[in-house]
Write a protein that binds this DNA or RNA. Structure first.
Length: 254
DNA sequence: ATGTCACATCTAATGTGA
């Protein structure tokens, strides 16, 4: 199973890139963040993306996520549910047998850091309940937090920067500690050059001076099947690169 | 302090968010 997540920074500006990318990558599961569009603004070619069950969960101009699952993984359109803490369209979920997949966009926190911490706390409980039920889980998306300094290029390290603060790092570690595995870090424990976001001005991406804030987190049984999880730095003009994982996991049809 | 984008709005130039 191939799983992909990408913060597109505006789906309408990324329409051609997304279609081109899907043509080559062909993921079974696709999660998008920052679509910045309400469902009625989604381009026709994407609204019912061919071969996928599609969930567009967004609003005008800001935030928003989507989740797409290849049709052969489920017999009918999955049911999407949005828990209470899903404010500003930041979470989409789908069940594939025992597996729940989440497309998640954690608040940046620059505007309202308390809202970010509250979202992380709510996500913590939500993940805890799912794992306690014995579900397998894939939490994909822009979590807007670097785990350690290794996830920030030395030139970008700043103690007081949002995304690098100890309290948000502790919150993310708390979520992981309940039984989720950061696939990129599991497969590349010491790698410094696996950033998923770069400051939007010139050459930072080319020079790979960035941060790792996009993740694919998997429950332990699922993570044990992971073979690859790396960003696609070369692709697209969003400030984030796509992140793609391959797992030896067969979805049992619901 | 700065830079770059996508998208919004009193459709033209400016504000917001990241």
């Amino acid at each position: 199973m191939k799983v992909a997540t990408w913060n597109v920074n505006g789906i309408r500006a990324r329409q051609d890139q997304l279609l081109e990318w899907l043509e080559n990558e062909k993921p079974e599961v696709l999660c998008l963040q920052e679509i910045k569009a309400a469902p009625e603004q989604i381009p026709r070619s994407l609204l019912e993306l061919e071969g996928y069950w599609n969930c567009w969960h967004g609003q005008k101009g800001y935030s928003g996520v989507s989740l797409h699952v290849r049709r052969d993984l489920a017999r009918e359109a999955p049911v999407f549910s949005h828990p209470d803490f899903d404010f500003e369209s930041r979470l989409a979920a789908v069940d594939l047998g025992p597996l729940r997949v989440l497309s998640c966009y954690v608040p940046n926190g620059g505007k309202d850091f308390f809202a970010k911490m509250r979202f992380l706390a709510d996500l913590h409980s939500y993940v805890g309940h799912l794992l306690a039920e014995g579900r397998q889980l894939l939490l994909c998306g822009d979590l807007n937090v670097t785990r350690t300094d290794l996830d920030v290029h030395p030139k970008e390290r700043r103690k007081s920067a949002i995304g690098q603060l100890p309290e948000e790092r502790e919150a993310l570690e708390g979520i992981l500690g309940q039984g989720l595995v950061d696939l990129t870090r599991m497969l590349h424990p010491e790698a410094p050059e696996i950033f998923t976001w770069w400051p939007p001005w010139r050459k930072m991406r080319e020079r790979n001076i960035g941060w790792r804030i996009d993740y694919i987190l998997a429950s332990e049984a699922l993570a044990a099947t992971a073979r690859e999880c790396l960003p696609r730095r070369e692709f697209g003009t969003s400030d984030h690169g796509p992140l793609v994982a391959r797992l030896d996991w067969q979805v049992t049809q619901a």
